[in-house]
Design a protein around this nucleic acid. Structure first.
Length: 241
DNA sequence: AAGATTCACAACCGCGGGTGG
DNA sequence: TCCACCCGCGGTTGTGAATCT
């Protein structure tokens, strides 16, 4: 159901999250918050990019998330809100506690849009039934009509109110911050999109440069020790401190 | 029973906005 | 004003599961 895990050319892990990764991410965020997604994977000991961590947390690990089927009430509300706001999924998600924008977006595309499409077909058949029957004679016309409907439904601005209303009838039928900011000098050596930049301890050439963390006062290490194991990182912390 | 098709949804990608130097 | 960094959003894709033929 999800992409198989793999490593990209930068050594960043992609694809499905393992149980262990979930645990690491959850534990880290619960303890230290997520004030800096980009640096989080390094501190948490994850071979992921910050963007991936954020997505996983927001869409799956965050507390109080609802998983599973949408209720009729939720579906109804989504239709109403989509009619009002269009594809502003995050806006819609704010009105549905426990649901993420991604969930709602997926639900819309897999359930509601299809049903609206069905209603649209009915409406069109009512308005010009003979034409519709011609289109469907060989089956090809249906695909074309689907595309037309698709275009309409892609934009909520173009979504006729009566369609949405008719669909509502169908519906009835059925943190604490870790104050992290540390200026990592080593970061300036990196380039590319910051989201995909790896923060991999495993792949850095300096990881073998060890130091005794226990020699420093504990307040020097607001993060789990395993996330700070090279001297340039340590230097960044002290420069900022 | 087996292959084809569709469904459902987790995850990725690219873009744009906000912010600070 | 410009630029880089950081973040969040919305569109899209990939793939296992379910269903159909």
């Amino acid at each position: 159901m999800v992409r198989s895990p793999f490593y990209d050319k930068n050594g960043v892990k992609k694809g499905a999250w393992s149980r262990e990764e979930d645990d690491k991410l959850r534990d880290y965020i619960q303890r230290y918050g997520h004030s800096n997604w980009r640096q989080l994977p390094k501190y948490a000991g994850l071979a992921r990019c910050g963007k991936s961590c954020r997505l996983r947390w927001m869409n799956y690990l965050r507390p109080n998330l609802k998983h599973g089927n949408f209720t009729n009430e939720e579906g109804e509300l989504i239709i109403q809100l989509h009619q009002k706001h269009g594809n502003k999924w995050s806006l819609i998600a704010e009105k549905l506690p426990g649901r993420t924008d991604n969930d709602i977006k997926n639900y819309w595309h897999s359930h509601l849009k299809k049903s609206l499409k069905g209603n649209e077909h009915r409406d069109r058949d009512t308005e010009c039934g003979s034409r519709a029957s011609h289109d469907d004679d060989d089956g090809d016309g249906d695909d074309e009509s689907d595309d037309q409907c698709h275009n309409i439904l892609e934009s909520s601005l173009a979504l006729p109110t009566d369609i949405a209303e008719s669909n509502m009838e169908w519906s009835r039928d059925q943190d604490q911050s870790s104050s992290t900011v540390v200026s990592w000098e080593s970061l300036s050596l990196c380039s590319d999109d910051f989201w995909s930049r790896p923060f991999l301890l495993e792949n850095t050439t300096t990881t073998t440069t060890c130091f005794d963390q226990t020699s420093f006062p504990s307040f020097c290490f607001p993060y789990p020790y395993e996330g700070i194991d090279n001297l340039s990182d340590l230097r960044g912390i002290f420069l900022d401190w």
